[in-house]
Amino acid sequence: MSKRKFNNLEGMRFLNKANRLLIFLAAVLLFMYYLASFLIPLAFGIFLAMLIVPFSNFLEKHKFNRVLSSLVSTFTLFIISGIFFFLFFLQINEFAEELPSIEEEIRSGIEYLQKEVADATGESQHNVAGIDTLWEVIETRIAGFIGNILEVTFQFLLVFVYTFLFLLYRGKLMTFIISMYSPGSEEENAKDALSKISKVVFHYLWGRLQVMLSLAIMYYITFLIFGLPYALLLTLFAALVTIIPYIGPLISGILPITFALIFFNDFYQILFFTICVIIIQLIESYVLEPYLIGKEVELNALSVIVAVLLGGIIWGVAGMILFVPIFATIKIISNHSGKIQPLGTVLGN
């Protein structure tokens, strides 16, 4: 066989592999998209089980049986998260009830901003166009959000059912996965991969929770000092969205600054408040995240951005939260598989 024919043959093989890989990825993405209502609670249940499993192991070391340790661990996680979401929904409901009374303040704030921009740029001030439409959209969104609480509650409870079951049957699940590999090096490789996945997911989620709590404390103190209205609601929202890498911290900073622009009348108060929020953002990005999360996920910046955007397209906000640990899991599996090891290299640092 000539060298040219050999090269053509190798090229055809490469294209066939690439086509098969693209078809496989497309099938996986379609599968995840159309089964989102089933897979999202399942994924949350898996990751929450990985987060709480050290506590469950601790209980079992102190003479709790597997059923009781799984039940207590799940119930503890349910109570903590339930208190958070109860406060958040309560604040949202109070804010929705007070919307009509603060509508005029928001209108005045927007008009004030338009006047300041007009004075600074020398352009003539236009009437506030589209405020009524914008206000209707805001009210509709909030009403729809509150109306979906029943559905959210059902999904919330389902997640903890999955969490309990994964904790209860974690030994059998591990044994089942490992039994699929041949005894010897493949079996040890599978054990090592599962151990690393569990460790990475735990450290990522636990670190992310610590960042959320630290950010919430700094925000709440700042909001109280400046007298920002709806301080608790904004703090809970900021803590919640921070779990989304890159995008979450940005949103958590923009919203309180927007409220400051609406409710504060003094320019210097707005300026100092904005500076404080920016400082908190810098502390979160350059101090808290590197220290509390570190490089446990070991994904490069491009992989994280792709995970967040792709997750948002496929699963919405839930995907923006879940796809980062999912990508980290894929990276570890790739590194322990010779056939798809290049994928782990692309995703990693």
Score class of each variant (00 low, 15 high):
Glu116His: 12
Ile244Pro: 00
Thr258Val: 08
Glu296Trp: 14
Ser73Glu: 06
Val287Pro: 04
Glu105Gln: 07
Ile40Ser: 09
Tyr286Ser: 10
Ile314Pro: 03
Phe202His: 15
Ile314Met: 01
Leu59Trp: 12
Ile279Lys: 07
Val308Trp: 00
Ile243Leu: 06
Asp266Ile: 03
Pro41Glu: 01
Leu205Arg: 00
Phe38Gln: 11
Ile217Pro: 04
Ile293Cys: 01
Trp206Arg: 14
Ser69Lys: 02
Thr329Gln: 05
Pro342Cys: 05
Arg20Met: 15
Phe88Met: 09
Gln114Arg: 11
Ser252Asn: 04
Gln269Tyr: 12
Lys172His: 10
Leu232Val: 07
Lys115Gly: 09
Leu39Met: 07
Leu59Met: 13
Ser37Ala: 14
Glu296Ile: 04
Ile131Met: 09
Asn189Trp: 09
Thr235Gln: 04
Val287Ile: 14
Thr121Asp: 08
Asp119Leu: 11
Ile102Glu: 09
Ile262Ser: 05
Ile23Lys: 12
Ile106Lys: 02
Val53Asp: 12
Asp192Ala: 13
Gln114Leu: 14
Val324Cys: 01
Ile149Pro: 07
Ala143Trp: 10
Ile197Gly: 00
Thr153Ile: 08
Gly171Thr: 04
Gln269Met: 10
Gln341Leu: 09
Phe85Gly: 01
Lys295Met: 03
Ser334Cys: 13
Ile270Gln: 14
Trp206Thr: 06
Pro256Tyr: 10
Ile102Leu: 10
Asn93Thr: 10
Ser73Ile: 06
Phe323Thr: 01
Ala239Gln: 04
Val72Ser: 05
Phe327Ala: 14
Ile142Asp: 12
Leu343Arg: 03
Ile80Lys: 07
Asp266Pro: 02
Gly130Thr: 05
Leu59Asp: 09
Asn349Gln: 11
Pro100Thr: 00
Met320His: 02
Leu224Lys: 07
Ala193Glu: 08
Asn93Pro: 02
Ala307Met: 03
Met50Ser: 11
Ser101Gly: 08
Arg13Ala: 15
Thr329Lys: 03
Ala231Thr: 05
Gly294Val: 09
Leu99Gln: 05
Leu158Glu: 10
Lys5Glu: 13
Met180Ser: 09
Ile254Ser: 08
Lys3Gln: 14
Ile138Phe: 15
Leu299Tyr: 02
Asn7Trp: 14
Ser198Thr: 07
Ile257His: 03
Thr163Pro: 05
Gly312Tyr: 07
Phe156Cys: 07
Thr345Glu: 15
Ile40Gly: 11
Ala36Arg: 13
Val117Met: 11
Tyr112Glu: 13
Phe55Met: 12
Val152Lys: 09
Tyr169Gly: 04
Ile52Leu: 14
Lys331Trp: 03
Met320Phe: 08
Gly227Ser: 01
Leu232Thr: 04
Asp192Pro: 00
Gly338Lys: 07
Tyr34Asn: 08
Glu98Gly: 09
Lys295Glu: 13
Asn65Cys: 07
Leu288Asn: 03
Ile146Trp: 02
Phe38His: 10
Tyr181Met: 11
Met32Ser: 15
Leu271Tyr: 14
Ile278Leu: 11
Glu298Tyr: 15
Asn148Glu: 11
Leu347Lys: 03
Ser214Leu: 13
Trp315Gly: 11
Ile247Leu: 11
Glu111Leu: 13
Ser303Tyr: 00
Pro290His: 03
Ile142Ser: 06
Ala328Thr: 02
Phe24Gln: 08
Val308Gly: 02
Leu25Pro: 02
Ile244Arg: 01
Pro325Asp: 02
Ser69Cys: 03
Ile217Lys: 03
Ile142Tyr: 13
